[in-house]
């Protein structure tokens, strides 16, 4: 059963093709990774699924519903949560408020109730707070910083708060854009653990873009490889790893950084 399928997605900016006829199926309850050299169109694919970009051709189907024409907030309301490559926390808010904001689509408080903060608003705030404390803060071990402004947190913690915000939505599909980029080994291992736990405990499907091949090979069930906006390979991690097209894409692109990571990943996976 596919929770998300992307059919023939084509996206271009002016004359530049970011995506060319990309097909992808994400199985419910899986961890699916999208990899590829820099500029391959991975983030464009994510943004098209989120609804921020409008692809010229193709369809995005989520839980059997065609969402190609839906605006981003409606897609979020259907249960598509995500994090961003360049940490998009709301700097004027505390950790707690950032995470609560993630639960926005699950809440119903209207304006009048909010202004007076009686009855519904009060109950709902307390309820969401309880859920966040139990499900998210304890799980991600960030309860000690809940009242901190996010702007001053170290990078690793910011990444974790972003994940917390996405989880507060209780997403059916969680999209992670480079969840471990820029982290040290220990932080990476923590994050990999969190992602596996999310899949196991939350009954959530994970779709991620990641450059760290070690992590991709270790935890994904399915891997899609993009190059120049085209899908060049798909399959289980071991299959993709052996695919000559993939190796050529990474070598041919002259992307030393990716190559090095990929080689590092190979030794680790082996």
């Amino acid at each position: 059963m596919h929770i998300l399928s992307v059919d023939g997605l084509t996206l271009s900016f002016g004359g530049v093709h970011a995506l060319r006829g990309v097909d992808m199926q994400v199985a419910k309850g899986s961890i699916t990774a999208v990899i590829g050299p820099n500029g391959a169109g991975k983030t464009s694919l994510f943004n098209s699924i989120s609804g921020f970009y409008r692809p010229q051709e193709g369809r995005v189907v989520f839980q059997g519903e065609d969402i190609t024409r839906l605006r981003p907030p409606h897609r979020a309301a259907l249960g598509i949560g995500r994090t961003f490559q360049n940490i998009a926390l709301f700097r004027g808010m505390t950790v707690l408020d950032n995470v609560k904001l993630g639960a926005h689509v699950r809440m119903r408080t209207g304006l009048l109730s909010a202004l007076w903060y009686l009855g519904k608003a009060r109950r709902e705030e307390a309820e969401i707070r309880k859920q966040i404390e139990r499900e998210v803060f304890d799980f991600l071990e960030i309860d000690h910083i809940r009242r901190h402004p996010v702007a001053n947190l170290p990078y690793g913690l910011q990444k974790r708060v972003e994940l917390a915000r996405a989880l507060a939505m209780r997403p059916k599909l969680l999209m992670l854009d480079e969840p471990v980029a820029g982290m040290n080994r220990e932080e990476k291992e923590d994050m990999a653990r969190f992602i596996l736990d999310v899949k196991e405990q939350w009954d959530t499907t994970v779709l991620m873009v990641e450059h760290d091949m070690g992590m991709v090979m270790d935890i994904s069930d399915q891997v899609y490889v993009l190059n120049f906006g085209q899908l060049i390979a798909a399959g289980k991690p071991s299959e993709v790893q052996a695919n000559p097209e993939v190796i050529k894409a990474y070598l041919g692109s002259g992307d030393i950084h990716s190559l090095r990571q990929r080689l590092g990943g190979k030794t680790r996976a082996a």
Partner: peptide, 14 residues
């Protein structure tokens, strides 16, 4: 506040 800080991300978050 989310709209003030990052409107596009806010929109993607619902």
């Amino acid at each position: 506040i989310a709209i003030r800080d990052r409107d596009i991300s806010a929109s993607v978050l619902g």
